[in-house]
Each structure stands twice: as C-alpha cells, then as structure tokens.
Design a binder for these strands. Structure first.
Lengths: 162, 162
DNA sequence: AGGTACATGTAAGTAGTTACATGATTAC
DNA sequence: GTAATCATGTAACTACTTACATGTACCT
C-alpha cells in the first residue's frame, strides 16, 4: 500500500491502540526500503507504485513482534483532574465523568460494529486475532462506562452529605 | 515537599495514571518558582528548604485543572503484537496474554491494598476523589484480567480447530 | 567504611507531532 | 472549475527520558 493508505489503515483499524503520523511514516518507510525490508512494486504500467513487504521484511517483523512489549508511560489527564477533584469542584468532576461515560459508550458501539463487520466477512486465519484486539476494546470501554456511572453516583452522595 | 519527594509521591500515589522524571521536575519547578507559582520555604533554621505552592499557584492550578483533558496517543504494544498474532504464533500470543493477566491480577491486589489504606486513615475531603482514581484502576485491571482469560480460551479453540 | 536513600541539576539524545510545501487525481 | 481526497516529503519544534555529575545524611 501507499504511505498514505498505511496511515489510513493504522488510524481506522488499529486506531484504538496505535497511532502514527506522516512525519513518522515516510522517513521510516524510506529507511525500511534502504534496509531491503520493504520494496516498491508496480503491478502494471498504469497503476501507481506501492510499498510491499519483502521476505526479509517478514522475518524482521516476526523478530520484532517477539520482542517483549515495553509498557508506555501512563498519562491520563482525566484521572489527574479527578485526583485533584476537591480543587476542581464537583461540577467539573461531573463534566469529566459524563464525558468519559459518553465516549466509552460511543467507543463500545464502534467496536461492536467492527466485530460484526469482521464476523460478516469471509473467515481468514487473521480474523480471530483481530477479534482479540476488538474484544480488548470492548472490555475496556464497558469497564470505563461502568466506572464513570458508579463515580457519578458517588459524587451525588458527596453533595448530599455536605 | 522537595523535588525528590514530589517524584516519589507521583510514582507512589499517581503511579497508575501519571509519571514524571527528574529531567522534567526540576526545570519545571524552577520555572514555576520564577513565575511565583511555588516558593521555597524553610520552617526553621535546621530544617531543609522545601517547595510549597503559593496562593497564585493554587489559582493557576485550578485554571489548569479546568482545561479539557487532551487524549493521549494510544500505543499498546501487547495489542499490536496480538493483531499480528498469526505471524507471531500461538505460543507467543499465549505468553503475552498470560503476562497481561498476571500483571492485571497483581495490579488489582495493589489497588485493593491502597483502597483499604485510604479507608483506614481518617477521612479528609480529598479521600472520595482519591478513591475515584483507585476505582478506575480496579475496573480497568478487572477488565484486562477477564479479557486475557477469555482470550486464552479463544486461542485454545483455534489450536484444536486446526 | 560502605551502602542506601535523599537531593538537585544538566546535557545529550530519542521520539514524535505539527505545520508547511507541493502536486496529482477524482468527484460533483 | 473547484473542492476534496490521495500522495510524499521535510523542517521546526515540543516533550520527554536517560545517563551522568555531584553531594549530603543516615544506618550498620
């Protein structure tokens, strides 16, 4: 595929757990090409040249996939704000939780649509693995929605107490 | 507190949703001081000087907390590897899921300990908000553990099918 | 005396985004 | 014909980590 299409695919398909920008994609693609891990192929004269992974690239990919995943540094702005909830005020907290809840519900609907789409297509050996990542999103979204709803009730109790 | 103690507090208390390094803390502290948002106070002659937030700093904090949280760029190495599970192989996937499960279970135990600690201390107005963030961690950890267990069963089914 | 924790700071390097520049192709 | 999308690329900048340098205080 083209670098442009690659980015599309990353944000469409991997969107909920990965992201890349053009400034990252094009230099990396050039580097991979110099290392012989991808090549530029042109199906026929009229078609545009597209990047494709080489045999060596596949080996390299398998090696990289086997490396232990390194945990990313956590940075959750919503939780940081809630931690200082007393300074922020109850209304601000409610807004944050309401937005988190809405976002989670929307995400969940999105994941369920993707799941149906995958299950409707003809089955390939990749599908079960795709579904694993979708399932992760569904679990996380459901958990976030439940937490936000619970937390909104907690805020109500705080207000009535004082 | 000191910059050192601040970092301790961040990794101990906010650890599951925030992180800062010394290279970030000290320059920022100096900048905040130049802006009059924190000051260096010395309780008595023999005690060490410590940073404390000023009245203006509190106002600034409140303003910053009210800014909408910006969503961080997603980057989940485990899910990326599982997405390419067919290339990685079933055993590699199982390792990833098993480790995710174990980590989640450990995290959950940690959160429950923190919750008990907070609830055992004498109640302050901040506690309910601290508990909100702990609860978020508990929900997320439980969801991750459930997803990993479910997914391990899915992998078993794939193996028996083929 | 020797190790661990406390404490502050900086320089080099890594990782990545944003914004810009440029142009082709497609859709209406 | 003109707006949107496809397509490639770079330069400047932001954010952040890691490693290093340095020293004090306390424990045993």
């Amino acid at each position: 595929m083209s670098g442009y299409a690659l980015r599309q695919a990353i944000s469409d398909v991997l969107g909920h757990f990965w992201s890349e920008s053009f400034g990252q994609i094009y230099p990396t693609l050039a580097e991979l090409r110099a290392d012989g891990l991808v090549e530029v192929a042109q199906a026929d004269k009229d078609s545009k040249p597209k990047f494709a992974i080489t045999e060596r690239g596949l080996e390299h990919l398998r090696a990289r996939l086997s490396e232990p995943p390194q945990s990313e540094r956590p940075r959750n702005g919503t939780l940081l704000r809630l931690f200082f909830g007393r300074r922020l005020g109850l209304d601000g907290c409610r807004d944050l939780l309401e937005q988190a809840r809405r976002q989670a519900v929307e995400q969940l609907a999105g994941f369920e649509a993707i799941r149906r789409e995958i299950q409707a297509g003809e089955p390939t050996g990749d599908h079960p693995f795709f579904l694993l990542t979708v399932s992760s999103g569904e679990h996380a979204a459901r958990a976030t929605a439940a937490w936000a709803e619970e937390s909104l009730l907690v805020l109500d109790r705080i207000e009535n107490q004082s």
